[in-house]
Computed example of a mutant assay.
Amino acid sequence: MKKRLISSYDEVNDTFVGKIDGEIGFCVDFDISDGVFLGINKNNCPNSVYICNASSVLNVSKQTLENSNVKIKINCNSICLYFTMFIENLCICSLRCKNIFDIPLVDFEMDSNF
């Protein structure tokens, strides 16, 4: 499944925010890795991403984070959640964590160019 991503980067506060177009709010926010938060909707599906201290957490320049060509892939099974983030088709972040969040089986992509 593919959804349209709306993303923004605040250079002053060094925060990256991305959300699925048309989604309003979230029910819960999970810290899936140091500084990477995943918002979950009422159906337990991911609908937003928040990264504080983004340039440090992702180990990229602030200039890179200002690019609007962002793609986020989220795959989840009963054991693990996989989070991958691309900017200009370059993989800048790839995380795996235990699925302790009751997220159902999902395989989708949030793409700013969708």
Rank of each mutant, 00 (worst) to 15 (best):
M1I: 06
K2G: 15
K2F: 10
K2T: 15
K3C: 05
K3H: 03
R4F: 08
R4T: 14
L5S: 04
I6K: 05
I6R: 07
Y9D: 01
D10H: 12
N13G: 11
N13Y: 12
N13W: 09
F16Y: 11
F16R: 05
F16P: 01
V17L: 15
G18R: 06
K19I: 14
I20N: 00
D21H: 08
D21V: 14
G22M: 05
G22Y: 05
I24H: 11
F26L: 04
C27L: 08
F30D: 03
F30Y: 15
F30Q: 01
D31R: 10
D31M: 13
S33H: 15
D34L: 06
D34H: 12
D34F: 11
D34W: 11
D34M: 15
G35F: 08
G35D: 11
G35N: 06
V36W: 04
V36Q: 05
F37N: 05
F37R: 07
L38Q: 01
L38D: 03
L38I: 06
G39V: 01
I40N: 02
N41M: 07
N41R: 01
K42H: 13
K42L: 14
K42Y: 11
N44Y: 13
C45H: 09
C45F: 08
P46W: 12
P46I: 02
P46A: 09
Y50E: 13
C52Q: 09
C52I: 14
N53T: 09
N53C: 07
S55E: 05
S56N: 12
S56L: 05
S56E: 02
S56Y: 12
S56M: 13
V57A: 02
N59E: 12
V60K: 04
V60F: 03
V60I: 14
S61R: 06
K62I: 01
Q63G: 10
T64Y: 04
T64V: 12
E66F: 04
E66K: 14
E66Y: 12
E66C: 15
S68P: 08
N69R: 04
N69A: 10
V70I: 11
K71P: 09
I72S: 01
I74V: 10
I74S: 00
N75T: 09
N77W: 03
N77L: 03
S78P: 09
I79V: 02
I79R: 03
C80V: 06
C80W: 09
L81R: 03
L81A: 00
L81Q: 00
L81F: 00
Y82H: 15
Y82K: 15
T84N: 03
M85H: 07
F86I: 11
F86R: 08
F86D: 02
I87W: 00
I87L: 09
I87V: 13
N89E: 10
L90Q: 14
L90I: 15
C91E: 10
I92S: 05
C93H: 09
S94L: 05
L95V: 02
L95C: 04
K98A: 07
K98Q: 07
N99H: 12
F101P: 05
F101E: 00
P104W: 08
P104L: 11
L105Y: 07
L105F: 13
V106T: 06
D107E: 13
D107A: 02
F108Y: 12
M110E: 01
D111L: 03
S112T: 12
S112R: 03
N113H: 15
N113W: 13
F114R: 11
F114N: 13
F114C: 13
